Amino acid sequence: MATFNEAPPGDRKAGEKIFKTKCAHCHTIEKGAAHKLGPNLNGLFGRQAGTSPGYSYSASNKIKAVIWGEDTLYEYLLNPKKYFPGTRKASPLLEKPKERGDLIAFLKESTQ
């Protein structure tokens, strides 16, 4: 499996399209926005998994204690249910390295 460092450079605009079509129905990114089916992703990078206030996470999400960065998110987006066994996340897998890199580029800029 390739790592984030081996991935093609991310394209923020392409990542925005991916977010809108595959993620926005469950997640918000604006500071102070409400959680949806999934947690608000604002402040994602550098935050420990399972700690966004006001959202109920699966036990496996809390126990793994991952700190979100480009590398951990890149691996997670490939197969969320494998990354966190028992997670409720039912999103489409992002198998293409370019798609994951694009989404990460968008989230890195949009969730700060």
Rank of each mutant, 00 (worst) to 15 (best):
G46I: 05
P53V: 03
K64C: 06
S60N: 14
C26W: 06
A24K: 09
Y57P: 08
L94M: 14
L107D: 07
G101K: 00
K17G: 06
K17V: 11
L93M: 12
W68L: 08
C26M: 08
L77K: 00
P80G: 03
P39V: 02
A65V: 05
I18V: 15
T28W: 04
Y76G: 04
D71C: 01
K98P: 04
T72I: 09
E6K: 11
A59H: 12
A33V: 03
N5K: 14
Y55R: 07
L73V: 08
Y57E: 09
H35S: 04
L73F: 03
E70D: 15
G54R: 02
D11K: 12
K13P: 10
Y55D: 07
K89P: 04
A59L: 14
L37V: 15
R88P: 07
L103W: 10
F4Y: 15
K31W: 09
Y83V: 02
N79T: 06
T28G: 11
E95I: 03
A14N: 13
N42C: 00
R100L: 00
L44M: 03
P85D: 11
T28D: 12
G15H: 10
G43F: 03
K82A: 15
Y83E: 07
N40Y: 01
A59V: 07
A59W: 10
Y76S: 04
P80V: 00
R100G: 00
T21Y: 08
P53N: 08
N79S: 14
P80L: 01
T87K: 04
I104S: 07
G86E: 13
T3E: 12
G32F: 08
R100V: 00
L103S: 10
A105H: 08
T72K: 05
N61W: 07
N40Q: 06
G46N: 10
L78Y: 14
N40F: 00
H35A: 00
G101M: 01
G54V: 00
L107V: 01
Y57S: 09
F45E: 09
